[in-house]
Structures are given as structure tokens and as C-alpha cells.
């Protein structure tokens, strides 16, 4: 049986426990679940919100493509990825990845691979809103993120 990833791009928050339950419910073959949650930082009090823009349609397609690669490469039994868009305040969730496998290493690797590729190839962009009310700059892409992706090659 091939595992199909669960991919969602949404404005509203998500419930991590509910997402874990969706992956594991009624199964006895899963021995490991790894979750990653990305949150909005306040950047030492200078940031009041991040505004997440995305390319509707392509964002989901690209996340699904990456997730299918991860499932095949690490023989995952389940993989969910949820990414929010719109204005997100410090402390709020931005992204979740949940990877399920028979053993822990595949689940860790699957979640890590998913995030490394999502950051560099899923079409999302962050704009900063300042705590002083200013509309700040678009976040610049980091070389470190490309390096994190390239370690999987």
C-alpha cells in the first residue's frame, strides 16, 4: 500500500494532537511519530507579526511533491504537512510536519527532509511587520537553508 501525504495550506491554526491522531488512528504498524512545529518569533520585541504570502495551487502541489519524495526515500507510513498563510503573530504556529514510521530514525529524517525542502522550494514568502507599526521588509532567503537542503543530495 502506498502512503499518500496529507497536505494543507490554510489561514486558520491547527491542532497538533488532532493531526497526530489522524495519522496514527487504528494503526498498529507505526512505532515512531516525529512532529516539527514552526512558530513566529518576536525577534527581541521588534516584530509584531509576519505576513505569509503563498502561490495558491502551486504551494500545495510543491508540498505534495516533496512529501512524496520523503515517503519514498524513508519508507514512511504517514506524512502530514500543514502551512498557514496570512498575518501571524509572535507565538502563533506557522507550519507543522508530522512523520510516522516503524522506527525513529526514518521519522526524524522524513520530518527534517520535508522541512528542508519546503523552506527552499515551496512558494511561500514572509513579510515582517514591526512592533512600532511599520511595515518592514520581506525576509531574505538564507544560504544556510540551501545548505540544509543540499545535505540530502
Amino acid at each position: 500500500m502506498t502512503t499518500a501525504p496529507l497536505i494543507r495550506v490554510q489561514a486558520q491554526d491547527f491542532d497538533l494532537q488532532a493531526e497526530i491522531d489522524t495519522l496514527t488512528q487504528g494503526r498498529q504498524d507505526i512505532g515512531a511519530v516525529v512532529t516539527f512545529t514552526g512558530l513566529c518569533r518576536n525577534e527581541q520585541g521588534t516584530l509584531s507579526a509576519l505576513e505569509l504570502e503563498h502561490y495558491p495551487g502551486m504551494a500545495e502541489t510543491e508540498m505534495r511533491r516533496i512529501a512524496e519524495l520523503a515517503i519514498a526515500r524513508f519508507s514512511l507510513l504517514g506524512l502530514s504537512a500543514i502551512h498557514r498563510y496570512g498575518k501571524i503573530a509572535p507565538g502563533e504556529n506557522i507550519v507543522a510536519v508530522i512523520a510516522a514510521a516503524p522506527h525513529r530514525q526514518a521519522a526524524f529524517d522524513g520530518a527534517s527532509f520535508m522541512m528542508d525542502f519546503l523552506k527552499t522550494s515551496a512558494p511561500f514568502w514572509k513579510k515582517e511587520h514591526g512592533a512600532d507599526g511599520s511595515t518592514g521588509d520581506w525576509v531574505a532567503a538564507k544560504d544556510a537553508d540551501d545548505a540544509a537542503r543540499d545535505k540530502w543530495r
Binding site: 502561490y55 506557522i94 523552506k119 527552499t120 522550494s121 515551496a122 511561500f124 514568502w125 520581506w138
Partner: peptide
């Protein structure tokens, strides 16, 4: 055709 800067999601 979509035209955009390097991506910064996640």
C-alpha cells in the same frame, strides 16, 4: 508563468 523572489516559508 509565476515570477517571484527566492522562497522564505516554513
Amino acid at each position: 508563468i509565476g515570477i517571484f523572489p527566492p522562497m522564505t516559508g516554513g
